[in-house]
């Protein structure tokens, strides 16, 4: 990990296209950052990232019983997606 000391209003450049500015440091220790980046660069709080990872992991390997339970909770409406279908075994 690269560790740099920066003061308010000082900046970092990442990969020539992302600029991180230290906007200020609050008395509570909270650091305010400003980030400018091209539209294809996604920037999120790490907590959000971890939360979505955790939801995906929980979603893996579901059972048919779970599908039936979920269907019972939905009001269905056409049209549903068109994807390959396999008959019941």
């Amino acid at each position: 990990m690269l560790v740099l000391a920066r003061r308010p209003n000082e900046q970092l450049v990442i990969n020539g296209e992302i600029i991180v500015t230290v906007l200020g440091v609050g008395r509570n220790g909270q650091v305010r950052l400003g980030i400018t980046a091209p539209p294809h660069v996604q920037i999120f709080r790490h907590e959000l990232w971890l939360e979505i990872q955790a939801e995906n992991r929980q979603a893996a390997t579901p059972t048919q019983a779970g599908v039936d339970a979920a269907l019972g909770q939905l009001l269905l409406r056409a049209p549903a997606p068109t994807v390959p279908a396999f008959d019941q075994e």
Binding site: V67, L71, L74, A80, V83, P84, A85, F86, Q88
Partner: peptide, 8 residues
């Protein structure tokens, strides 16, 4: 793929 018609 689907195993039954519907939104899942």
């Amino acid at each position: 793929y689907q195993t039954q018609p519907g939104p899942m």
